[in-house]
């Protein structure tokens, strides 16, 4: 039972981790990217439609990632070139993605609301030799699909790019002190554009996983505000990659509990489905308390924000 819940927590967290890793790049570059859901939904659609048409999972994933990166490039264009406020532009892009995918669902796949087919290829579970034989941990770690492993293995790579490379230093300086970056001759907008594209890349993987790995179907607005939950994880962990992923995993665990507990306890499932949202709210409350605490201690009046 417990290992069951842990196994599904790992699975359920995967799209959250992808989206959070994507979102933390833009966060570190000083942009509040609220369009993660929009990137994911368009990727989920492009991935499943392509996989359905070609029968190739690889083509599906690539199509999802490209679609998401294209949308990210749009958002970057609106924000960086035409100077639209990132929040407004982000909402616009998300609604565009919701509307566009619903429209294409009807016009291309001829479905209202949900599309599923047994012609959609599925990811095989990967049994890791030796590891799967380790007691307790083995069954949790082994037997997931490829994208799950990609998500977890991306975490150290993301940390490395941000904290060990020249590019990462530039991203972080741009995020903290844009003036300083400009004065040092860094092309701030170019760096921001790059982080937005990477955001699109990871959200593309998240979306492709949602429609091809997590389930084998596409539903309208199937991201279920996972992008916003990923944002909450980013804020909670202040954009640090490993911590962000850990918080995303915690949210995933909460979701796993809400799915599994009704089967065990017999309590009303509607009530238990609140768990992930309660955990998210709790996390945001902790963030709020943490950020105001210093000032409360020292008695200063806050004029900013």
């Amino acid at each position: 039972m417990l290992s069951d819940i842990a196994y599904s927590a790992i699975r359920i967290s995967t799209p959250l981790i992808f989206a959070a890793l994507g979102g933390l790049y833009t966060f570190q570059a000083g942009m509040l990217n609220i369009a993660l859901d929009g990137f994911m939904i368009i990727a989920a659609f492009a991935a499943i439609a392509t996989a359905f048409a070609t029968g190739s999972l690889t083509a599906g994933v690539i199509a999802g990632v490209l679609a998401s990166m294209l949308l990210a490039a749009f958002l970057a264009l609106f924000n960086l070139r035409f100077r639209a406020h990132i929040f407004i532009a982000g909402i616009a892009v998300t609604f565009l993605a919701y509307g566009l995918t619903a429209l294409l669902l009807k016009s291309v796949l001829g479905q209202d609301g949900v599309f599923a087919s047994d012609q959609i290829p599925t990811f095989p579970a990967i049994q890791i030799p030796f590891v799967r034989d380790i007691p307790i941990i083995g069954p949790l770690v082994s037997g997931h699909t490829l994208l799950v492993y990609v998500a977890y293995l991306s975490i150290p790579v993301v940390a490395w790019t941000l904290y060990r490379t020249r590019w990462g230093l530039r991203v972080r300086i741009v995020g903290e002190a844009e003036d300083a970056a400009l004065a040092a001759g860094i092309r701030v907008d170019w760096i921001k554009f790059q982080t937005m594209l990477i955001s699109g890349l990871f959200c593309g993987l998240a979306g492709a996983y949602l429609s091809l790995g997590y389930v084998s179907l596409f539903a309208k607005q199937m991201t279920n505000e996972r992008g916003l939950i990923a944002l909450a994880a980013i804020f909670f962990a202040k954009g640090r990659p490993v911590r962000t992923a850990a918080v995303a995993l915690l949210f995933g665990l909460a979701t796993a509990l809400s799915v599994r507990l009704p089967q065990v306890t017999g309590a009303a499932p509607q009530l238990l489905q609140l768990i992930p949202y309660l955990v998210t709210i709790l996390a945001m409350v902790i963030v709020g308390i943490r950020t105001t605490r210093d000032n409360a201690h020292n008695g200063g009046w806050r004029f900013d924000q």
């Binding site: 230093l169 300083a180 400009l182």
Partner: peptide, 27 residues
């Protein structure tokens, strides 16, 4: 008004924009 990134070190602030690198664009 100084154009510095406050949470970064002196060295990081000085070199940013023309950083010394090792292989693989490592800082």
């Amino acid at each position: 008004h100084f154009k510095l990134a406050p949470s970064f070190t002196v060295a990081e602030n000085i070199i940013v924009g023309s950083e010394p690198v090792k292989s693989f664009a490592r800082l």
